[in-house]
Computed example of a mutant assay.
Amino acid sequence: MGVIDLDNAGPGARVDDLAYFAYRFAPLSALENYFDGGWSHDVDRMPRLQRICELSPLEERTQIPELVLRRLDEMRQWIRDRAAEGDPAVQNHIGIYDADARYIEREHDNIRAILES
């Protein structure tokens, strides 16, 4: 059984889908947020990212860190907009995305090296 979250679904570029897939399934998230995706702390995320890239023919995959950071910014703004409309329950998710963005910024060079190999 699985759950698919379609809150922000819409048309887009294949590389955007690949970037979000890598973010959620490598996963490219802060260690404290692994629970959100159901991951254990010993997940081999960089080798997983390498395997994801080996399966993708997209040359644009080197853009993944920047695309994920942009997506996280968009998601944080979406949450702020929802909170401003009277849904304060979504506000706690901003901290998750902030931590994930900090992780990607900190590991940017390592992520890029894998994507370029």
Rank of each mutant, 00 (worst) to 15 (best):
M1H: 14
M1W: 12
G2Q: 15
D5P: 02
L6Q: 12
D7G: 12
D7P: 05
G10Y: 09
G12P: 06
A13R: 15
A13S: 14
D16F: 02
D17M: 00
L18R: 02
A19H: 05
A19E: 04
Y20A: 04
F21C: 06
A22L: 01
A22E: 03
Y23D: 03
F25S: 02
F25P: 01
P27D: 07
S29H: 08
A30Y: 06
E32W: 12
D36E: 14
D36C: 05
G37T: 02
G37W: 04
S40Y: 11
D42Y: 11
V43H: 03
M46T: 10
M46P: 09
M46Y: 15
M46L: 15
L49M: 05
R51S: 10
S56A: 12
P57I: 12
P57G: 15
L58V: 06
L58H: 04
L58Y: 06
L58M: 13
L58W: 06
E60P: 03
R61L: 11
T62Y: 08
T62F: 08
Q63S: 09
I64G: 00
P65F: 05
E66N: 14
L67P: 03
V68C: 00
V68R: 00
V68P: 00
L69N: 07
R71S: 12
R71M: 15
R71G: 09
L72Y: 02
L72P: 03
D73G: 13
M75R: 06
M75W: 02
R76L: 01
Q77I: 10
Q77F: 13
R80Q: 13
R80C: 08
A84Y: 10
G86R: 06
D87C: 02
P88M: 02
Q91E: 13
Q91N: 07
H93N: 13
H93M: 12
I94Q: 00
G95K: 03
A99T: 07
A99I: 08
A101Q: 09
A101W: 06
A101M: 10
A101H: 08
Y103Q: 09
I104N: 00
E105G: 13
H108T: 08
D109L: 12
N110W: 13
N110V: 14
I114A: 00
I114Y: 01
L115D: 04
